[in-house]
Amino acid sequence: MADAWWSVLALPVMLVVAACVAAGFDALLGASAAYGPAGSVRVWGTRAATPLREARRLLGQPARRTKAADTALVRVGTALLPTAALLAGAVLPLGFTAVSDPGVGIVWFNAMEALAWAAVWLTGWGPNAALSMIGGYRFLALGLAYELPHMFALTTAGLGAGSLRVGEVVAAQEGLWFAVWMPVAFAVYLLSALAMAFWGPFDQPVGADAAQGAAAELSGVDRLVFFGGRWLLLVVAAAFSVPLFLGGGHGPLLPAWAWTVVKTAAVLALLIGVRRALPTLRLDRFMGLAWMVLLPLVLLQALAVSVVVVLR
């Protein structure tokens, strides 16, 4: 339980740096597909820096408003996304120390990332535009699809450790990581990590077919804060899989914080790669899959884990 005040400041800085690195890696993958393989290291560098140049461009761009827009709701929606990510990151341990490790760490994480429901809908509703409202509603459909399997995956991890405190979940994975004996819960959690940040195959709320859906009318700082918030949420979602299923700081040779960084980077690279490999899943088809396939699977996993816990 790090009660040092520096950890409260270090968390946002680390998350923003991780988000920039992840955005650079994603820009590299996208550029190699769009413009062909990078010749020299200089081209490789400029491609990796495109997100930062884009951020500078957006900072300089004045925001524009649509007619009869509810700018207050847009501003709350866009500001709420990074806030939700940072609040959810409060229970993320680096190695074995986190900003705060309450007894209900897992439920806190779930509650804070559920704030994205309000954030994306408000951002979609605010500008009073057709496509952005459609994008906002799509996130509600996505939420309905991913939320229950996600909750049961988190509960299964808590069940395995016998506690909702993230620290104890990490401690319970001393010998055997949860990902090994709870593979379905780990897979469902990764799917819901993608869905939570509406990233990869689940980016229909900001889909290319609806001109970036909820973010269609965002420009300038609003757009930067919104998409920056989405990156932060993706980083936090990927990072939370480490203490929950991949043994947090445990691992031979390397110090605890190094293992956390390595594992988070691996999960983040996997999540970013998935976006390159699949088209956007349309929610009317994914909703059926989520309710009729994922939910029973994750319930069976919870049953299996509880039987193991009772017999142990």
């Binding site: 993958l29 996208g30 597909a33 769009a34 062909g36 980016d203 290319a208 077919d209 088209p279 956007t280």
Partner: peptide, 16 residues
């Protein structure tokens, strides 16, 4: 079509 279906990479390859 691939861009509308959200598969940005393959769409970019197709156009290149």
């Amino acid at each position: 079509l691939l861009a509308v279906a959200g598969w940005a990479d393959q769409a970019a390859r197709a156009r290149r």
